[in-house]
């Protein structure tokens, strides 16, 4: 009922752990699979280890979750051990994630990770939290998206998904640029740029001043990005951003997502949010008479294009 295929990879359900949440260790990702996720995305890795920003790196409340971790990771060589450990513990699909400050860095990482047992490679062109270090994210430039996608495709046999940012006015155009350059999928969205100020402390809460907003506040933004991209590209979309309920996930799929990324929901509903969300998806599918997810994928576009759909 919930099984999905994307880029030739089989998923037991459409929920994918989003990159940056619980994805540091193989065992941590294994537990997410045990908690009901269909697949996991590892935390983005770079060539060299990075300690990330000092704390506070995360702060959450009822409406939003804000983070500026600063892409901490142990570097690709150490991450390889975690990837292998995950594959010893679980047969579920693993999505690798890489980021670099330069085009050449991305190419070297892609070449390196190509030998590792990942099922799909996500290319993180869109982290908003390392601005001063790397200038603006590549995901803000059509030219950069095109070039890096093309370069990486030449170096890896793995299917690649380009992770885009909601901090642009033309995400559909950027998705088109990635598709034209050979991308196999799009992951959208990364977090939207934001900040929080503690009134009593009279200063920003995040040590990095600003960060990325996820959680419920991101959901309607992400949903529109997915909706817009679905009209622009033919490649599948991993719809990510603020999904916390089964209804959110179904709306994402109706907007056009093939898989649904889940991250901050772990904060809102616990690590078993994956099980809770899949149960809610099944309940709604049963009550709405939806037999499989292909039946409803992108259906919100059809209803808007005046195709006759009877709702009983």
């Amino acid at each position: 009922m919930l099984d999905v295929t994307l880029c030739g990879v089989q998923f037991q359900n459409p929920l994918v752990l989003a990159s940056g949440i619980l994805g540091l260790t193989g065992a941590g990702m294994y537990r997410v699979i045990e908690s009901g996720a269909g697949a996991v995305t590892m935390k983005s890795v770079s060539e060299q280890e990075r300690p990330g920003h000092p704390n506070p790196t995360m702060v959450g409340n009822q409406t939003y979750f804000l983070n500026a971790v600063g892409l901490s990771n142990p570097g690709i060589e150490e991450a390889k051990k975690e990837i292998e450990h995950f594959k010893q513990l679980s047969h579920a699909p693993l999505i690798g994630s890489i980021f670099a400050g330069t085009r050449d860095g991305f190419v070297r990482l892609a070449e390196h990770i190509d030998e590792m047992p990942i099922d799909l490679l996500e290319v993180n062109l869109s982290c908003p939290n390392v601005g001063q270090e790397f200038a603006e994210p590549f995901a803000y430039s059509k030219e950069a998206v095109k070039q890096i996608t093309k370069d990486i495709k030449e170096k890896t046999k793995k299917p690649i998904s380009i992770k885009l940012s909601p901090n642009v006015w033309n995400i559909a155009e950027l998705a088109k640029a990635a598709e034209a350059a050979g991308a196999d999928a799009i992951t959208a969205v990364n977090t939207v740029s934001g900040m929080a100020i503690d009134v009593r402390a009279r200063r920003p809460i995040l040590h990095n001043t600003h960060g990325g907003v996820s959680g419920p506040a991101l959901f309607p933004i992400a949903l529109k990005c997915v909706y817009d991209m679905y009209e622009a590209v033919k490649i599948p979309i991993i719809g990510t951003g603020g999904v916390t309920t089964g209804e959110d996930a179904l709306a994402m799929i109706m907007a056009g997502a093939t898989l649904v990324g889940v991250g901050s929901a772990v904060y809102y509903r616990g690590e078993d949010c994956f099980q809770k969300i899949t149960n809610e998806i099944k309940d709604t599918m049963n009550s709405e008479g939806i037999k499989n997810l292909d039946e409803i994928r992108g259906i919100a576009h059809e209803t808007m294009n005046n195709k006759q759909i009877t709702i009983r």
Binding site: I21, L22, L24, A27, Y30, R31, G52, H85, V266
Partner: peptide, 22 residues
């Protein structure tokens, strides 16, 4: 630990993957 609220995965232990902050 980084976040303390079970999100960042920094304190997950091998092999069960439980989060020691939570």
């Amino acid at each position: 630990m980084k976040c303390g609220v079970g999100i960042c995965g920094q304190c997950c232990v091998d092999d069960s993957g439980i989060r020691l902050c939570t």
